[in-house]
Design a binder for these strands. Sequence first.
RNA 1: GGGCGGUUAGCUCAGUUGGUUAGAGUGCUACGUUGACAUCGUAGAGGUCAUUGGUUCGAAUCCAUUACCGCCCACCA
Length: 879
Amino acid sequence: MKEVPKKFDFTNSELKWQKFWEENRLYESHPIEGKKKYSVVIPPPNVTGILHFGHMLNNTIQDIYCRWKRMQGYEVCWVPGTDHAGIATQVMVEKELAKNGKTKYDLGREKFIELVWEWKKKNGGTIQRQLKKLGASVDWSRERFTFDEGLSLNVRKVFVDLYGKGLIYKGKRIVNWDPDSQTAVSDDEIFYQERKDKLYFIKYVLEGSDDFITIATTRPETMFGDTAVAVNPKDNRYKKFTGRKVHLPLTDRLIPVIEDDYVDMEFGTGALKITPAHDLNDFEVGQRHKLESVTVLTKDSLLNEHAGEFQGLKIDDARGKILARLKSEDLLVKVEDFVHNVAVSDRTKAVIEPYLSEQWFVSMKKLAGPAIDVVRNDKIKFYPERYKKVYFHWMENIRDWCISRQLWWGHQIPIWYHKQSGEIYCDVNPPSDTENWVQDEDVLDTWFSSWLWPLSVFGWENNENDRLNENLNYYYPTDFLSTAPEIIFLWVARMIMAGMEYKHEVPFREVYFHSTVRDGRGVKMSKTLGNYSDAIELMDKYGTDALRFTIIYLAPLGNDVLFDEEKTQIGRNFVTKLWNAGRFIMMMKEKNVFTDRLGDEIEEVDITEKWIQSRFNATLEEANRFLREYRLNDYAKTIYNFVWSEFCDWYIEFIKIDINNSPERSNAILDNAMKHYESILKVLHPVMPYVTEELWHLTGNDRDNRSISFEEFPVSDRGRIDERIETDVEKLKLLISAVRNLRTENGIEPSQKSHLYIAAPSDTKAMISKFENQILKLCNLEIFEFADKKLEGKQYASAVSGESEIYLLLNASLNTEKQSEKIAKEIDDLKRYLTTLEKKLSNESFLNKAATDVVEREKQKHAESKEKLNKLLRLNQNN
RNA sequence: GGGCGGUUAGCUCAGUUGGUUAGAGUGCUACGUUGACAUCGUAGAGGUCAUUGGUUCGAAUCCAUUACCGCCCACCA
């Protein structure tokens, strides 16, 4: 036994155990033949990232499962790593450059990439340090980066393979063009923002006539790319125009009027200008009608040569000038206010320009099939289950994946073009004759490396049958994936597709979609909104365990977490409570003067012991079940309630009394208490690794090199659950509360001893007698006796608790009015209750239709309440 | 526009096959610092279970409707 500090010094403790875990390489994993494994891959955070609340929650969840499984004897392997995060990282380094007035073009591609690597070396370790602080029991020897050599090889391998299978193609498509970073971004990397805009009504004059069609548009500047005007075939207003041609304003071009179902007759004028190069829907209309696509914008969103005199202008400038011209030519009919959604780049916040360009695509339909099946037949389980629906909907309507990005930081596409012949070469390695070939400039979407993550981190690049692949063979498929719901398509779905395509096996068996962390008002936490609490700061302030516990306690499966700094007190107070309980038991052992071990049979005879064992085993049953069912907040709550409301509030109070009354048994009692306490530490270790490790070492003398994280996780022994004893102790608690209540109400000083009479049926008497010492102490009585003596002539306050009537003897005169008022209210409530019961019991249909045990229960309730009512009525008379 | 989730005490949430006089934590109020813990203890107040209707002997629980909040998908010029 070591000396126990009065307070838990979490700052030093965290450093100490981080070091201990790392230096002893406790969480490094190796394939062990015949041993069951549990493997998890971390969702790789951006290499530029810092730990925010979402990470904290997500990694705590993973850590809980890894620690839990480790304590169950599994060979646990949790692989950490980071993502090179194409745009995010490139943008960050470009900003650095801009501070010195430079652009990436000043450096050139090669130098720029070198700079990013340097930047990564300098700033990239942050999130790893923060994960260590969080206590994440990952295997650091296995850390991976999506740009590592092996992982990059896998990326090329998959590209080449899919290209060979004809599943990768290059096509002219409308993509989401981010004019700031000058790259295409996927549909999943944009979001829509509501904007107030104008809707412009413009005349398109019919060829050889004064007649005209008015179209409505929000983007007049794209009119130079118009190649048709479309109307709905059912629209009689425009029948006379179809098949004819109209003058494209401000130009000398003529464009046809066509019919297409896509046009909404109700909207605007019912006539739509078609700009295939700058709108996805228009592009599709254009395909159907074999229209030409005219691009009118440059890559940085300036008008190009098709815009005539407006060439070189920015969109906004051009719009004003074009409108002025239209007005002067009397072609602008009117302008209306208009609210619509505008696509914005997730990374740069630039307004997305639908842009026709050459991009690489993966054809997804074929890959989706097997990935749908494995979720449908539960080879992969989703928690919460409802995400299955979301998944199916997306997968069944899957679109091709635009994988090319016009960036420099990323895996460059393994395609080479022959300088003379234009021949295409696709391979994991460059052509040997480098002189005559030039590589495709584009890089791949970051997710094109992330979707291989569960394969890549275990060395998939090595030959399948190679012994080097024992890692992949042992750890794949992984067992558990915990992730944010917003990347279900971006990442989860694609990993499933890759796993099925390349391993014919799921990449993981269970997926947990964790809560979104919001602030106290329910707004999603984000840096830009400023409602952001710094997770690391709070860990420093309250302790990592406190924060981990709080967030798990607050995060129910399938619901969001509303986090407020104030709430961290839940965890902090609990850590303190746990600490003090341990400190107390240890202090008692230290002080204990009895050296013999009388009363070793304590477990068999002592009702206190039997009770706590019963409660603890019931708690263990629940805790294990909740962990299995991914109900982490319930797991946290169950132990919290047990430790606080049963172990501390009652059990420790009971043993104080037991020891006081039979000090010769104190060794046995305290040993038992310590045994339970240590089990509590084990149950809590997955969620609070530091304080449990600290206490585990403090309570044991011989544990210098043993971590609690390899102790066996306690399981319930159902044979120890004793409902009879639990019921008795519940009654006892109620009795004690009732007496305390009487004392408080009658103004008896806490220090003042009092005298209690109890009237009860004989079996209850027997039960109460067993707890005589506890009742005396916990109610601060000098004496209690059964009320067969006459109470006449004595002043007392009275109450009914269960089957017992209790009479508390008073010295001072009693405030009888208050007493009878209270009892009267109790009588009232009870009478009302009895009425509802009687109504139910006199109801023929209830008696006939309800299950017999239900009827029995109601009858019993009735009898009990009736008896209690009689007792109360008697008390009231006596008063 | 389509889909999904939520609405229970001031706040955060339990309440999992319909059968409790609807619970917990936190906050609030009163009292308490004599040996684990004031980051504490004891006691107390506090709810028409969002609305309306239905099924049922019986509904917080099942069904339908409405309202509000949130999320996802699609995006209409």
